[in-house]
Simulated assay, not measured.
Amino acid sequence: MEEYKRTVLYVEDNQLNMALMHHIFKKNLPSILLLKAETAELGLSIARETLPDLIILDIGLPGLNGYEALDILQQDEATCHIPVLGTSAFAQVSDIEKARNKGFAAYITKPFQVKLLTETVERLLGGGL
């Protein structure tokens, strides 16, 4: 049985992105347990139940979008301390500024640059992986 030092929750509705993230973590961040949710609603439930060290949240989710889910996480005493990394294919300067202004700890555009994603996750987790 593997020993994980940290837990990250990835909320993403696209199965290809989910598979890519799983591969990135397995290869580049093997000491991190990656939990997955396909909807914001499920992600919120898992976040409350497991209190992960970091949440990676797609902004363009069906139902509750990433901004709405972030608002709920920030208003919940149990989850407000968890840093949230926003992800989206929207790469305009205005999109990045909007994400930062909403309170995301960081924002990464898709398609993911593996090195940037890995470094950002490590930074948001405070190192020690």
Rank of each mutant, 00 (worst) to 15 (best):
K98S: 10
L85M: 03
V8S: 07
D71L: 04
S45M: 02
A106G: 03
S88G: 03
V121S: 08
S31K: 12
A91F: 09
I46H: 10
L125Q: 05
A37W: 14
H23N: 05
Q92R: 14
H81I: 03
D13N: 11
D13Q: 03
A105Q: 09
F112D: 00
S88E: 02
L34M: 02
E77F: 00
A19D: 11
T50S: 11
A99P: 00
T39W: 06
I59M: 14
R6M: 12
C80T: 13
I32C: 08
V93R: 13
P62H: 07
L124W: 01
T7A: 08
I96K: 13
L57E: 06
V121G: 12
G66Y: 03
E122R: 15
N14L: 12
E3R: 11
N65F: 06
G63P: 04
N65A: 13
N28R: 13
G63T: 05
D53M: 09
L29R: 02
L20K: 02
N101I: 12
A91S: 14
A19F: 06
P52E: 06
L9F: 02
P30S: 10
A47G: 02
L20H: 01
Y107H: 10
E49V: 00
M18W: 00
A89N: 14
K27H: 07
T79L: 06
V8E: 06
K110G: 02
N65H: 09
T7D: 06
E49M: 03
G127P: 11
D71W: 03
C80R: 15
L125C: 09
D76P: 08
L35N: 10
P52D: 04
F90T: 02
F104M: 02
Y67R: 01
Q75H: 12
G60P: 08
D71N: 10
N28L: 07
P83H: 08
K26I: 05
L20Y: 02
L64W: 05
E119G: 09
T79I: 11
I59S: 06
R100K: 14
L125P: 09
F90D: 13
L34D: 00
D71H: 07
L44C: 09
Q15T: 12
Y10L: 15
E49Q: 11
R123S: 10
H23Q: 07
H22Y: 08
G126V: 12
D13K: 01
G86E: 14
I82H: 03
D58Q: 08
L34T: 00
L117F: 05
A106Q: 10
S31T: 15
F112E: 00
R123T: 13
G43F: 01
L124N: 01
A89P: 10
P30V: 04
D53F: 06
G127D: 14
E2A: 05
D58E: 15
L29T: 00
V11A: 05
V121L: 13
S31P: 03
A89C: 13
L64K: 11
T7G: 04
S94Y: 03
G103N: 14
I56D: 14
H81L: 06
I72T: 04
Y10P: 09
Y10D: 12
G103S: 14
G66F: 01
L51K: 12
A99H: 00
A105S: 15
K5A: 06
I46M: 12
I24N: 06
A91W: 12
